[in-house]
Amino acid sequence: MKMDILSVKNLKKHFGGVKAVDGCSIAIETGTVVGLIGPNGAGKTTVFNLISGFERGVGEIVFKGIRTDNLSPFKIARCGMVRTFQIPRALTKMTVSENLMLAPKSQAGERIWDVWLRPKRVREQERQIREKSRDILEFFEISHLEDEYAGALSGGQKKLLEMARAMMIDPSMMLLDEPFAGVNPTLARKISRYICELCEGGMTFLVIEHDIPAITKISDRIVVMNEGKVMAEGEPEEIKRRRDVLNVYIGGEG
């Protein structure tokens, strides 16, 4: 039996009177892809923000055996969880290459004294990081943009940049917020394939997506949220057949 890499229990987050997340529980097995779907305002992005520490709520979040619900975002990231944002956050006044090279953990050159005391090690590490960034850029077919400022990229390219940057930290789990939005179909298929490959390599994904055919194709399990709660959970085929899920999406009364 596989271990749960992430378990969320009875998570709640209220904004004034709005119950954005209202008692949400999700358990995710290591090395699986879980799709998180639901209509707008269902609380999916808030769940992401809570899991990644960008917002504080009530409830229990355990990631790789560590309680993370009280940790700040950077500590959660250091545990091996990385997220992307719904609206891509490219560092627009830095180049694509700088965006990627920023990401890797524990770089010697990030410590001010090592910049002076171990210049050789810093240079060597920079070389390795640059190589790695080139491989990842090549994969996402944006090598030609390496030296462009990220601000000059299109929306879809920024999306790719953000995923590429997240890959740079070798996470054990990735939270992707609408990875296919604004990406052309060929590339979307490629991203799907990449997610599946990484997943076989042991990485875990939680993916918010509105493109139902795409997400059901890559997911091992689907979680459906509505009004801050998990309304359905199961294998993609099973979820596709559920009338209540369809109704929520089409806008019916369930």
Partner: peptide, 13 residues
């Protein structure tokens, strides 16, 4: 300077 959410999400203090 650009967007502090990004370095936070990547594990920078």
């Amino acid at each position: 300077r650009e967007d502090e959410a990004v370095p936070s999400a990547l594990g920078k203090n």
